[in-house]
C-alpha cells in the first residue's frame, strides 16, 4: 500500500456531526499526527479508517475491507484479559494473529520478562500499555493506527515508542497517531480535528 487517502470524510454519531469535510493523504514513510479536543473525533477517525465505522460522507482510498494484513489498530483498550497471565495473553493473541510468538523475546524487548507469569491485573497501566503495543511486533502491516498510545507511558518509554515508530516509517510504513497531550514526535502531517468540528 503506497498511500492512504481520505476524501471529504464526515462522521455523524447519533444526531451529532463530529467532524466534516476532512481530507488528507499520507504516503509511505510518513506520520500523520491527529490532535484535537476531547470529543473532536480522533478515535472515531481512526476507527473509521480501520473499518469499524462507515464514513457518513466521503471515502477512504484504497477502498477495501481492511484486515490485520493491512492495518494494525491499537486502541485505548489494551486487549488484555486481566485475570490471565502475561504469557497466556500473548498465547491468545498468537491465535488471533495466526503467528507464532516468541514470548521471551517480546517480553525482553518490552522489559516485562519478570512479569511473565503474573496476572495482567497486577501490572501498572504503563506496563499494560507496553504489553498492548507488543501487538505491533507480532506481524507486519503497512499501516499503524495508534490511538493515544503514549498515555500512561513514562518519558523513557514514550521516547522508545517514538523510535519504534521512526524505524517503522523508515521501512516504508504509514502511521496515523492520535494524541490529546503533547508528544515529542516529528510528524509529517498534523491535523487538528477541532478545526473540522461542526
Amino acid at each position: 500500500m503506497d498511500y492512504l487517502l481520505a476524501e471529504n470524510l464526515s462522521c455523524i454519531r447519533g444526531s451529532n456531526t463530529v467532524f466534516k469535510n476532512l481530507s488528507f493523504k499520507v504516503s509511505r514513510g510518513q506520520i500523520l499526527h491527529i490532535t484535537g479536543a476531547n470529543g473532536s473525533g480522533k478515535t472515531s477517525l481512526l476507527r473509521m479508517i480501520a473499518g469499524f465505522i462507515y464514513p457518513s460522507e466521503g471515502k477512504i482510498i484504497p477502498e477495501k475491507n481492511y484486515t490485520h494484513k493491512d492495518v494494525h489498530f491499537v486502541g485505548q483498550k489494551y486487549a488484555l484479559k486481566k485475570n490471565l497471565s502475561v504469557e497466556k495473553n500473548l498465547s491468545l493473541w498468537s491465535y488471533l494473529y495466526q503467528k507464532k510468538i516468541n514470548t521471551d523475546q517480546i517480553l525482553s524487548d518490552l522489559d516485562l520478562t519478570q512479569y511473565k507469569d503474573n496476572d495482567v491485573e497486577v501490572l501498572s497501566d504503563g506496563q499494560k500499555r507496553r504489553l498492548s503495543i507488543a501487538r505491533l511486533f507480532i506481524h507486519s502491516a503497512p499501516i499503524w493506527l495508534l490511538d493515544e498510545v503514549h498515555v500512561h507511558l513514562d518519558s523513557e518509554w514514550q521516547v522508545k515508542l517514538n523510535h519504534y515508530i521512526y524505524n517503522y516509517i523508515n521501512e516504508g510504513g504509514i502511521v496515523l497517531i492520535s494524541s490529546n497531550t503533547k508528544i515529542e514526535l516529528n510528524s509529517n502531517i498534523d491535523i487538528n480535528l477541532t478545526n473540522y468540528n461542526v
Binding site: 480501520a50 473499518g51 481492511y66 494484513k69 489498530f73 483498550k77 484479559k81 488471533l96
Partner: peptide
C-alpha cells in the same frame, strides 16, 4: 461481552 470490554473484539473483527 468480555472481548468487547477489553478490546479483543477489535482484533477478532480485523481477522479475515
Amino acid at each position: 461481552s468480555s472481548d468487547f470490554d477489553d478490546g479483543n473484539l477489535d482484533i477478532i473483527l480485523r481477522m479475515k
